[in-house]
Write a protein that binds this DNA or RNA. Structure first.
Lengths: 234, 234
DNA sequence: ATTTCATATTTCCGATCGGATCCTGTATAA
DNA sequence: TTATACAGGATCCGATCGGAAATATGAAAT
């Protein structure tokens, strides 16, 4: 079912290629991508030994990865019962995420605008352009691609604010946001791209207050685009 | 050296008392308290097997606890080398923490004031009173007590904002803040208590804007109280 | 005395084993 | 038919073992 990252039957599979560096690290990466791509559905059980069999490793690195993922809120553990992917965000969780984004991101955009330089401007423009392309060739699939670029766009702004704490915190929030969205794949990406454009323009012309306002508007609209879906399932 | 939480020699120590629920959980708690109380100094090595011997448990729960602590930024791991307590915050880290607190806490105070009810008011008053007492009996020790109450005071406000994300994020920030402070034990607690008083008054009379402002002032002053120390050590 | 190389120790990390707990399903009785 | 109890299976969790990597130790040579 899932991909094999290590030979499951080879005798000296791992002794061959350059002595692996971090085994549990790879397991973590695989699990993370499986969760954010929804190959593992929310609330789906994640059995340690079956995963160990599938990936061809022992239970130890699996546990390590699951503990990390639990600390990040992507899986939940019930003692002596098992692990499972975190449940879909409730409407309440959702409000909390947007409330917090509203506190962090406009300020980050404001600061980033004041710190603006050519490198950052170029990276922002590039991320924005790729989303525009994605928008124009518009097949119905590839919300996941859009999500990746959107996350990158917001991450660049957070980084440009110069505060690594904001980068980390926002990274977590965006992961959950997109996890939520891709379940309902509300493909209203056009408006998002347009709002990004407004924001980017403000930042590029050094209008910090305008960037702050544009980011706040963007987050509010983003929230309103999803609200209709928040009560639907579950 | 450290305290023993499980009998290290008893034959059926754990089968006796009500079948332990979560062993790694306890190890986590012990390690956490050792780190925030600085019994384990920043950058001090934390060996898995020596800890296992000291606590009388195997390496497995130790590893689990360390992985969790690493995810929370309280310990750092070097592959195939070992774990160690996180280094003391740099002046830069410190600025980042305060920058983020300035984004979150005034807003939290504002919202909490609008949501104010008797239970919360009582808890706030109680936490505040205990800090006043601590201030008046003023022995030079017990910054750690002050830190605990201060964290509680701010945590109550965060909880009252109704946003659990803010609660969690702020909890982490406060841990690091106090970790930093207790190293330099700058015992300027009197001003803090006075500022808390101003903030509490605003909240209790339902002045949301005033509470927001008071919190912002409090954080700014708190930061300024520590800034002189940020360049000193290391 | 300093440098270099080889050895030994420390430590992590993955593998595996056994026990304890919880969940599920079936059978029996009311 | 429904509810309860018991048995079986699945799973986590802690313990222990062995190997690999990195660091520390010490000896030898220049």
């Amino acid at each position: 079912m899932t991909r094999f990252i290590y030979s499951d039957s080879g005798d000296t599979a791992q002794s061959r290629l350059k002595t692996r560096n971090a085994m549990g690290e790879d397991v973590y990466e695989v699990l993370l991508s499986q969760i954010i791509s929804l190959k593992i559905a929310p609330q789906e059980r994640i059995s340690v030994d079956s995963l160990a069999r599938e990936l061809g490793v022992s239970q130890t690195p699996i546990r390590a990865a699951l503990i990390r993922l639990e600390a990040e809120g992507l899986v939940v553990k019930k003692h002596n019962v098992g692990y499972s992917a975190a449940p879909t965000l409730s409407a309440r969780d959702f409000e909390e995420i947007y409330e917090m984004r509203m506190l962090l991101e406009p300020a980050a955009a404001e600061i980033a605008t004041r710190n603006m330089n050519d490198t950052v401007a170029q990276r922002l423009q590039q991320a924005h352009d790729r989303m525009c392309e994605l928008e124009s060739e518009q097949t119905k699939r590839s919300y996941s691609k859009f999500a990746r670029f959107d996350a990158e766009f917001h991450a660049i702004i957070a980084e440009a604010s110069g505060n690594s704490l904001i980068v980390d915190t926002l990274g977590r929030l965006l992961t959950h946001t997109h996890l939520f969205r891709s379940r309902r794949h509300s493909a209203v990406t056009r408006e998002a791209v347009s709002e990004h454009s407004t924001l980017l323009n403000a930042m590029l012309r050094g209008d910090a207050a305008g960037a702050k306002w544009a980011m706040a508007e963007h987050i509010n609209h983003s929230r309103e685009r999803i609200v209709p879906f928040t009560e639907a399932g579950l």
